[in-house]
Design a protein around this nucleic acid. Sequence first.
DNA 1: AAAACGGGGAG
DNA 2: CTCCCAGTTTT
Length: 347
Amino acid sequence: MDFSTELINWYHNNKRDLPWRNTTDAYIIWLSEIILQQTRVEQGMPYFYRFAERYPTVTAFAAANEDEVLRLWQGLGYYSRGRNMLKTAQLVQEKYNGVFPVKYDELIKLKGVGEYTAAAISSFSANEPRAVVDGNVYRVLARYFGIDEPINSPKGKKIFQQMANQMLNKEQPAVHNQAMMEFGAMLCKPKNPACGICPVRIGCVAFKTNATAWLPVKLKTVKIRKRFFNYMLISDGQKMLMNKRGEGDIWANMYDLPLIETPSLLDPVEVLHLPQMNVFGRNITLKDNSAIIKHILTHQHLFIRFFVLKDLPEEIPVNWFYADVNDLENLALPKPIFIFIKYFFNF
DNA sequence: AAAACGGGGAG
DNA sequence: CTCCCAGTTTT
């Protein structure tokens, strides 16, 4: 049996029952694929149900607004995915009359749809012979063929895409692609792969040379920047001063408290003489009578200190507004802001 | 070619 | 702590 057949057999006996596998509706598949970009299945699952229920069709999605989409997306990260989804839904509604495209060449033009996602949607919904290359596929191919070319270099990406194309079972591309990814996720895992029960270990270079631990090779490029955010919770206990973030930085278009970014955290005692607070809880440590949260992003470590002010200014900057605590459910908040406000207002 | 973009879970 | 997750876009 060839490689693809082995994996497909394995897949039929071991696959998880995932909701987006029970349909060929390109819209539903698109929904799942965008949500699952750089996101584990367990983390994305509740968001998939949430979006599929709220927007059963691309037409329904196209009728949404950005605030609403971002609020539904809150907590999932990489928020440009949500913003791009709305643009794409609206384009599909207008240009394609609400019929979601299924051809790779059309899909690849859509905002937020790259090579992987276009291959996934076209193969899953219409059996177009396009090989997907996601993190799982990189790993499976790198190990099976013993390829040490970095998977995140442009050269490596090209090589692995070509290999995946060559491996593709053109009789059943959809199942082949699912099998490759499921195999990578469940058996050929990053750590402690289950080589003992692997159906293709006989032909696997990494298994034969005991190289699974260091394959695939990945260039590390991440430079972590430290940033210091001083947030002002200006509130009378019922409403608080907020504004909407712009684009060009993290959390684009989400709602934010007044923010002072400084080279290091402001000292609450010396710099400000504010009503002191007594806050502690999840991810919050008490220091110098103000709350500090360390929030970790891929390229940034945020050190966040919250100050509480009880005097509400009458004159506030343009575009700022007072948000009632009961209206927060309609506002997309960055995770650390949400955690703090949730604690502070005790909901 | 490199950097930016979230948040969470596993080891 | 490090690595990685059904990647894409921007610089």
